[in-house]
Amino acid sequence: MTQERIALRDTVRLLLSRASDVRTAMESELGYDPALWKRLCSDIGVAALAIPERFGGLGAGIAETAVVLGELGRTLTPAPLLGSILAAQALLACGDDDACARLLPEIAGGRIATLVWSDAQGTWGHPPCVANGQRVTGQAHYVLDGDIADTVLVFALAGPEIGLFEVREGAPGLVRTSTRTLDPTRRLTTVAVDSPALRLGGDLTSALPRIRDLACVALSAEQSGAAAHCLNETVAYSKERVQFGRPIGSFQALKHRMADLHVLVETAQATAEAAAEADESALPVLAAAAKVHCAEAFQTVAAEMVQLHGGIAITWEHDAHLYFKRAHGSALLFGSVSNHLALLTSSRRGGTR
């Protein structure tokens, strides 16, 4: 963590501590707090961090964006950042400077964008949509903020190629349906499209793995931040909860359990940071490793948070169940742990992805 990233982290953390109301946001019609999102974008520039300056961004990178996502994960703040990051990276990969100059400054300013990509099985490989000329047809699932996005970008098969297509807001044949999910703090949408669309750039077949790698890097930062918060809350509670005349945190068995959780959180944060700093050659392996380890660490720490908080943790009023649900929901996003373990195994054997 450089001094600049520490300052960014502290600024985001201060704003979220003052303005983030998770339950009100997740229960609202939009699923997030527009006023808070506006402040995150205008005051801090969170949506502009990974966008080059020539396209209206701040010219930082994924590592800086990961710092912000870690803080959003720590508080479970619903915010349309992850989907917008993916859409922006797809635009940058398409090589269409005119499209980038038109769309990226708006995304940097806070316009919500989404990337339509995954099929019904949650496979982030070949897209389920098909392009026939300037028309895209198909149905994608688990689309981040797909029901509220102003800019809708679609990966679609175009003959032997995979193209990126822009479907205009309000286009005929564009149907966006909110999906009820385990995690109430993350909006996912089923997007059906049978609409005219504008192709942006050329063939993105070779770019898809990198975009998914960046998605995994971003998600692992969010997971590691949430896991760290779960541990901190659990340690604090163990110092307050008294059983048999003494704080439960003083019992050796619980000390051992929390020491193990500490190791998990520290290694998860280190793995997420390494993936965010990776160069192009190391990115595939480190992104998959971060996805696997941060998902498993978050699930473990969230489960222990529930166990060590006792009965209070299974009430709706306590936030433990929200972290538990986020842990299991995010573990499946951008591919399951087993899927990424297979990618790691293939990489070790010298195979292709």
Rank of each mutant, 00 (worst) to 15 (best):
S42V: 14
E53N: 02
Q89R: 14
P105E: 09
S84T: 15
G59T: 06
L69G: 05
A79W: 09
A108K: 06
V67S: 09
L104A: 09
C94R: 08
I107L: 15
L86H: 04
R102H: 14
A90F: 01
D97M: 02
A93D: 10
L36M: 12
A108F: 02
S84M: 03
P105H: 08
D97K: 07
D98T: 11
R54F: 00
P34F: 08
P52L: 11
I107N: 13
C94Q: 04
G57F: 01
R111G: 09
A101Y: 00
C41S: 14
T77G: 13
L92I: 06
L36Q: 12
W37N: 11
E53P: 00
L81H: 01
G110M: 05
A50H: 14
I51S: 03
P52H: 10
L36A: 13
C94T: 09
R54Y: 00
A79E: 10
L103K: 07
L36F: 08
A108E: 04
L40M: 14
G83R: 10
I51G: 04
G59W: 03
L81Y: 02
G70N: 05
A88D: 07
L58W: 00
S84H: 01
D33H: 09
L72H: 05
L69M: 15
A88N: 05
A35F: 06
L86M: 08
V46R: 11
G59Q: 10
A108R: 05
I44V: 14
L104H: 06
A79Y: 08
D43H: 09
R74C: 07
C100D: 04
A50V: 01
R111S: 13
A79N: 13
L104M: 04
G57W: 01
L36P: 09
G59S: 11
V68K: 10
P34L: 03
L86S: 07
R39M: 13
V68Y: 03
G45R: 04
V67L: 06
L58C: 07
L76T: 12
Q89F: 10
K38Q: 15
L69D: 03
